[in-house]
């Protein structure tokens, strides 16, 4: 497989009055064409910041302070703003959490689509209109021709998110960054949007970076998953592997903490959830060594000193010298 997007040792810094905060601290990952990579982590893990770094939309003063971002054979972390603008929407599409705020409320959705299509792919207005109708149809909006004249507020939340996806597809991108695309939606609508994203990915061979805090969404959508903790990769690997045999103590704890519908996880209304003590450290007070060590049950004195790098363990890569690769079944 050829990798479409490659990040190597990405570092994102946020300078402030008394020094610099390191939000992303040496993250390496890659996404192949047609692959869905799930980026999971809790608030403060840095998952959205990685997405924003890739599309060059880091909010100042945050900036890429080290490492490289490659899209195909082009390095994109050093591009001038106008070059980045040509890439954004064209080669990289974006879907954000809240469809309410990513659509222009004062523009009919047909006009928004036509404008976006013609911006990225110069063509006569009439063909752009045909293309817009085709896109609406593709994302499952019924009676697309008629709906072209509707305003965003005339659609439900799920339909609005479908329109946002159509907009993201307008430039025929190779990569889509979807930042919490289903978080604002009800479960039944969420399931529809997940199915749609998967279908588009398969039909068009688009690579998707799916940023979410929801392991369930990852399990249903992603091919590979990358678990982030405090600005570093804790564990990365095929979804089935990471979810069924988590190795990093953080992933293990996270999986145990998720309330489940699985009857094997105890009687309804009775079983106690397993919990990870403490909370994700704030970016200003990250512990030395492995950032997870103060919350980790299997931490050794070394963990406070040595910052672990991901190393192969089974079909995954795990950033924990204690749990990988020797104790393969630390999870069970």
């Amino acid at each position: 497989m050829t990798d479409l997007l490659t990040l190597t040792d990405l570092v994102v810094d946020i300078p402030h009055r008394r020094g610099t905060l390191r939000a992303i601290d040496g993250v390496s990952l890659s996404i192949a064409r047609g692959e869905v990579l799930g980026l999971v982590g809790e608030s403060g893990a840095g998952k959205s910041m990685i997405g924003n770094a890739v599309i060059g939309l880091l909010a100042r003063p945050a900036h890429v302070a080290g490492g490289e971002i490659w899209l195909g054979d082009r390095r994109i972390d050093r591009l001038a703003p106008h070059q980045m603008r040509q890439l954004r929407g064209r080669r990289i599409g974006m879907i954000f959490q809240d469809p309410q705020t990513s659509l222009n409320p004062l523009m009919r959705i047909g006009d928004q689509l036509v404008e976006t299509i013609r911006l990225h792919r110069p063509m006569p207005a009439a063909s752009a209109r045909t293309e817009a109708i085709r896109l609406l149809d593709e994302v499952g909006i019924p009676a697309p021709e008629e709906r072209m004249a509707y305003w965003p507020h005339q659609f439900s939340g799920g339909q609005r998110q479908r329109i946002v996806i159509a907009l993201a597809l307008a430039g025929e991108p190779e990569l889509i960054i979807a930042d919490e695309p289903t978080t604002a939606l009800d479960v039944s609508v969420q399931a529809q949007i997940i199915r749609l994203l998967k279908r588009l990915c398969a039909d068009r061979g688009v690579a998707v970076m799916l940023i979410t805090h929801d392991m369930g969404v990852i399990a249903e959508t992603a091919d590979r998953v990358c678990v982030l903790y405090a600005g570093r990769v804790a564990e990365t690997g095929p979804v089935t592997e990471v979810l069924s045999r988590p190795r990093h103590p953080y992933t293990v704890g996270l999986m145990d903490a998720i309330p489940s519908l699985d009857p094997a996880r105890g009687e309804p209304g009775v079983a106690t959830l397993r919990q990870i003590p403490g909370a994700m450290p704030s970016i200003a007070a990250r512990p030395s060594g492995c950032a997870f060590h103060p919350r980790c049950a299997s931490a050794t004195p070394d963990c406070a000193r040595v910052r672990p790098d991901p190393r192969p363990a089974g079909r995954s890569e795990v950033a924990c010298p204690v749990c990988a690769p020797t104790h393969e079944d630390a999870a069970s």
């Binding site: 479960v187 039944s188 969420q190 399931a191 997940i194 929801d214 392991m215 369930g216 969404v217 399990a219 249903e220 089935t240 979810l243 069924s244 045999r245 999986m255 998720i258 489940s260 519908l261 699985d262 009857p263 309804p268 069970s332």
Partner: peptide
């Protein structure tokens, strides 16, 4: 309820929850 919801709507809600295939 979780052994088998009766109402069609409850069944739909339950089936829409993403399943984490664990183990």
């Amino acid at each position: 309820f979780f052994a088998g919801p009766k109402a069609e709507y409850s069944q739909m809600l339950l089936s829409a929850v993403p399943k984490i295939r664990k183990g």
